[in-house]
Design a protein around this nucleic acid. Structure first.
Lengths: 176, 176
DNA sequence: GTTTGCATGTAAACGGTTACATGATTGG
DNA sequence: CCAATCATGTAACCGTTTACATGCAAAC
């Protein structure tokens, strides 16, 4: 999903500034499915404006920086739906942790333990976030998506807890 | 994981040509954890050679194109281990399908059904591949990694099967 | 008094994908 | 006869990340 489409999607739910879009991507239930940084969001919003898919209004604020609030247009809504109707980009699960585990035999025991600990902690965080997101009222689609995430990360966590033992018994020999 | 590190990893197991590295990434149990294309592998091997992390020998073949077989050097092995000892790049799970599902309310019923079908089929394939990979003899680390993949994709598949019903009951209203 | 939050933006660098070029051999 | 396999490589393009620039207000 390119950043333009992500912006459009978020704007179908509510008007927002670039800053707010970033926040929603990070905090909302989107965090685990897509990514977007300021450096990509602002140019994306520019382009969407030029293409007539969103409109802007400037809001002057006191004691806070001025902001540009974006709204999706009818054309934008159509374009977003068209994007979801067409073929979706392939999922991309880049999993350096799993890749690294394949080479456990090359690494010292303690490094393996440390990686397992870190990854377990990280997965626990992710799960907690998804559980919190799941607690909030959501549309059917949102509920389904968070559930999917919980299912995946829950299974990963279970696997880590049950199977780390297999790796920790005398994995390492030497690390050069 | 950048492509250079992926190449090094694969070369720790056996010498290979660029072509073979690509194949192993695709077929071997790496497929679901990392990605690499020719356009990135060949330049990566060039750079690794310049840096002394791999060495090349040209092999002239009859009835087949000549090939360049790469071997990892001691320095390369150290560099690979160093990469695994340092902080790993963040996992990146880009999941356009899950993102799209969040907007199920904007899409017609049949499109949702179609997406669910396609995604289920795709996940089934992935699982089958991981099960086949798991059947082959593997090192402890490899076994752990394939098991992790199976756990994750298995959970996703179960979830899809059990919960698609929630989305299919009158999701759609209109699609503009 | 320092960090965090609010808020927008740019420019350079990076890594990677896609498409193209080439060409013999084998299998269906 | 056509597609796939083997095999290497280049170049243009792409989207994104990272780092930088700016600056006030509130909270700790």
């Amino acid at each position: 999903m390119d950043v333009r489409t992500i912006c459009l999607g978020i704007l179908t739910r509510a008007d927002a500034t670039g800053y707010e879009i970033k926040k929603r991507v990070e905090e909302g239930g989107y965090r685990h499915f897509v990514e977007a940084s300021f450096g990509s969001i602002y140019p994306a919003l520019d382009k969407l404006t030029k293409d007539g898919l969103v409109s802007v209004r400037a809001e002057v604020q006191e004691k806070k920086p001025n902001r540009k609030v974006y709204s999706i247009t009818k054309a934008g809504r159509s374009a977003f739906i068209a994007a979801l109707m067409g073929p979706l980009p392939q999922d991309c699960h880049r999993w350096p942790f799993a890749f690294a585990m394949k080479f456990a035999d090359l690494l010292p025991e303690q490094r393996i333990a440390q990686m397992l600990d870190a990854y377990t902690a990280q997965t626990e965080n992710t799960l907690t976030q998804l559980q919190q997101a799941g607690a909030k009222p959501q549309s059917r689609g949102e509920h389904f998506a968070t559930g999917l995430g919980r299912a995946a990360y829950g299974a990963i966590l279970d696997y880590l807890r049950e199977h780390r033992v297999e790796l920790e018994v005398q994995t390492a020999e030497a690390a050069e």
